[in-house]
Design a binder for these strands. Structure first.
Lengths: 311, 311
DNA sequence: GATGCTTACGATACCCGTAAAGATA
DNA sequence: TATCTTTACGGGTATCGTAAGCATC
């Protein structure tokens, strides 16, 4: 048994049992992949994969039980690497974040700027993607920190910390009749064509819930992944936009007006998400405490490495 | 990085940084051990060991932080082996117990007999040793289950379950004057020369505590590791024995009488101890539930693999 | 001087990649 | 037929053990 075999096992599951893809992903020959799997099964004396003819279809029962152990070992090898880099190259290294457009574009710039001043030699990788993909990237160990409003809660293998809170607000052209309406109600809004986020993005579910609770069916004529796109179409007069309030900048968004609606929609909380057991460099911990000053490094470590260090 | 290097790191710490011993323990050449350590340090870019000249003296800070991760990885490799044996050879295998003389001699025979009938093909290894050594063996993964009254409580990396309760009692030759004394008190007993267990064995601390609480200083003329030795000297008339009550068999111990003293000494609890994160074969779980029928397999697993499966 | 660590060196075994053949969709 | 997996084979590398050279105690 060696690490390469374990990497192949993990990658085989991730790539849905296509050994050719596995080989490409691991930069090795496909024949070796095949042999490694067979060797491992021989050594353990157990079939790990369900086969039909020559094709792999899935995991056997022992394979299923083996997988989490394999993943933990590989996680620990990464931890060893990060741990030694922590000592060998204090403040240089790599920090990978996965986050949604809203955070990347409107919230993180301040934090990132400060971080880059403190750790100029840390390469910062900002991966922008959807909430569910953030979870995937965290699980795969491809990013250190995830930042999202949706999908990261309630996952047993992730740890989350509240980052900041925000609400949805309306955005309209600055000559729009809604500007003079007081008070703004869901009923009034529902009379206009609406433009807002896709399902699963930036609290869309909260918007739908608010209308549903009021017994209204809003006329969402367009949905987009990010506020910039929404703004563009609001500017064209295609409808009233509903975006995250932090996504509005008075200076940059000339010609548009933000209409706060504090009571209409639920408060959203954006979270920092970490993978349990994923070792974090000092600068990664610092990034987190920069975001949430109320947190201490010890609290973070205690949450990421629960209780006993398991072993 | 490979598994052999990690094994060498672990063993180097265990063998107090004597690489020659490490090589013997791992059945390999000492030169390779030396090279492996150097290679690993080179690969990680960190010195893991403190050296003076050619001698290794201890772990550096990064080495200290690395060690628990290394141990967890090696624990998981054992878990992989056990897990696959679980499937490849259902009811055959190896079960290693570490226990003290009292349990091995007087308590376990019943359980072991039943176990052997159920799992005739499982090789049962019964290692008899002192309480502190039981903890060491559990930690080293050399035994699956520890059974002891002392030393196993309060260790964060161990899980314990109460096995059974017992009390100390007096043992005397069957013509001894104490047989007719009613009620037995510590004061009365303290007038006789006593023979009992060594410190750290079979609840000796409870015996001392009982006399201390009563303001008495008993005259312990001999101490031994096990009840059989104590009995032998009681038989010779050298004193009154204090042994664990389960260690007395009326038939086998002809010529001796057990005098119960329910109120004199505290109740002792003997525990089953397991190492957290140590995978247990089905038959090992069965052994435990045989000992403690109130326990379910799920409860045991939940305690050994806490919360999230970490990974 | 005895013990313990490192380095050098040769044999072995392991791992990888190419290529051909067989199976599957 | 195109894709995918297995098997066979050769080259390269890593690992291991022996032996010699040094450092430490």
């Amino acid at each position: 048994m060696n690490f390469q075999q374990l990497r192949i096992v993990r990658e085989t599951v991730r790539r849905h049992f296509n050994l050719t893809e596995v080989a490409n992903e691991l930069y090795t020959a496909q024949s070796g992949v095949s042999k490694h799997l067979k060797d491992l099964e021989d050594e353990l004396g157990v079939e790990l994969f369900v086969r039909r003819g020559k094709r792999l279809l899935g995991l056997t029962e022992p394979g299923k039980q083996l997988l989490p152990i394999v993943e933990r070992i590989l996680l620990d090898t990464q931890n060893i690497k990060r741990l030694s880099e922590q000592f060998s190259q204090q403040d240089t290294g790599h920090l990978a974040l996965a986050t949604t457009h809203t955070q990347a574009r409107y919230v993180l710039p301040v934090v990132v700027t400060r971080f880059k001043q403190t750790f100029p030699k840390v390469h910062l990788e900002l991966r922008q993607c959807g909430p569910t993909e953030i979870v995937t990237l965290l699980r795969a160990g491809q990013v250190d920190i995830g930042i999202a409003t949706e999908a990261v809660g309630g996952e047993a293998d992730l740890v989350t910390f509240p980052f900041y809170q925000w609400q949805h607000a309306l955005i309209v052209p600055d000559d729009h009749p809604l500007i003079d309406v007081q008070p703004l109600t869901l009923e009034v809004i529902a009379d206009y064509p609406l433009i807002t986020y896709h399902h699963g993005y930036t609290g869309r579910s909260r918007i739908d819930a608010a209308f549903a609770r009021a017994g209204l069916t809003p006329d969402v004529v367009m949905s987009a992944l990010d506020a910039d796109v929404i703004k563009a179409y609001v500017e064209l007069g295609l409808g009233v936009g509903i975006i995250a309030a932090p996504a509005y900048h008075p200076a940059r968004d000339a010609g548009l007006r933000l209409l706060d609606a504090p009571s209409l929609f639920e408060i959203n909380t954006t979270y920092l998400a970490l993978r349990r057991g994923h070792y974090l460099r000092d600068y990664a911990l610092r990034f987190i405490t920069d975001c949430v000053p109320a947190l201490s490094v010890e609290q973070i470590k205690a949450a990421v490495f629960p209780k006993v260090a398991i072993a």
